[in-house]
Design a protein around this nucleic acid. Structure first.
Lengths: 200, 200
DNA sequence: GATCAAATTTGACACTGTAAAGTTAATCTT
DNA sequence: AAGATTAACTTTACAGTGTCAAATTTGATC
């Protein structure tokens, strides 16, 4: 009864449909994401997805879950690159956040969108949201004694989330890659000031 | 040849369709927004909208334009409420931003979404984006001499935009109204520190 | 009052999601 | 090992949707 590998007909249709959906999403945006097209890409009939997801919203939710997994990996990779100070780790997580948004903008919008799961929905076996725990860990050194950690977390998250969405939306002008001279450094400068003084 | 008031049959179908679209949007989210349903609400046949908008994406774009107009009014209203210091005006614009998001979450998502216009698209006669100019005006007192105003603007905008989207998305827990004890005050505390020291 | 053009309707088609019933293939039972 | 059972998938069908091309109505123009 393994849900993982060799199954009846297709092998692992569920995963194939999710991947096809992600591909369609990043190729043509949310409008291009269609149950029938996903089925066609996976090589099955158009009604097959209904046995694995609760309709199109269900597929989108599953895509969002997969997106959060990849998202977490992006951020941990950004953090684990070499030894870093607490402050540098805070910058790294933000850089990972933005990088993910640049590389997978369609996915990111879906993750926080209408049928997305959001960060706090528990997935698989993990009893809490992995992505948020990463943020929490990186913010911890900057939480004043006895203060609610949510304060610092909300500050950092709001900043980088807002910047990333505005940036990939083209609201800062070009959407191209040269992050160096973009307003990103300005936002990072503000991140650097979090937790330096009386905060509340 | 007035595009404004009394026209041939309906009177002002264009505006009626936009309003119907906004209503549908806020009632049932983006999925509920349909050309045919808008037409039905406006009392015309299903193909009538095609003569006023470039399909559903076109209607969404028009809705987004209307949304930015209302958005601007929200922020100016928040600013013009009584005499305020520069710092208080900065806080007020953020409060207006959040209030708009709370009251018109569907509209806000569309404005910055797939077929939305974004802040910088010129609309009507105005040669530049009204909403952004409001932000610019409020940020101006905090831009250091000879510095690029975009820096401060990006900081404030990223913060309040990110917080608002996360908040209406339920990422901070409850989506209800008691803003007082929410992370909003933490974000405002961070806004208060913008432009107080060496910034870049 | 006849003409003309804009605004809207009618009808049609392809595509989508979804539900029901049918078909195939793997697993289970004895 | 052979039949029964269930899961995975297909086929068929239907209601909604966007979109296009042709009528049709309506208001204005001459």
């Amino acid at each position: 009864m393994s849900t993982a590998k060799t199954r009846h007909h297709h092998g692992d249709l569920k995963r194939a449909l999710i991947q096809a959906g992600i591909d369609l999403l990043e190729e043509g945006g949310l409008d291009a994401l269609t149950l029938r097209k996903c089925a066609a890409r996976a090589g099955v009939s158009h009604a097959a997805p209904a046995h694995h997801f609760a309709g199109l919203p269900g597929l989108i939710t599953a895509i969002s879950a997969e997106g959060f997994d990849r998202f977490s990996k992006y951020m941990t990779d950004a953090i684990e690159a070499g030894e870093q100070t607490d402050r540098e780790r805070l910058r790294s997580i933000c850089r990972g956040y933005l990088q993910f948004g640049l590389s997978h903008s369609g996915l990111l919008k879906v993750m926080f969108g209408e049928h997305g799961l959001g960060v706090h929905a528990p997935r698989d076996g993990r009893d809490e949201a992995e992505a948020y725990l990463i943020l929490r860990g990186v913010c911890a050194p900057f939480v004043p004694e006895g203060e609610d950690p949510h304060i610092v977390e909300a500050q950092v998250w709001s900043l980088i989330h807002g910047f990333t969405l505005l940036y990939i939306g083209g609201e800062f002008g070009c959407t191209s890659m040269p992050i160096e001279d973009s307003p990103f450094e300005a936002v990072m400068a503000l991140v650097d000031r979090i937790g330096t003084q009386a905060n509340t």
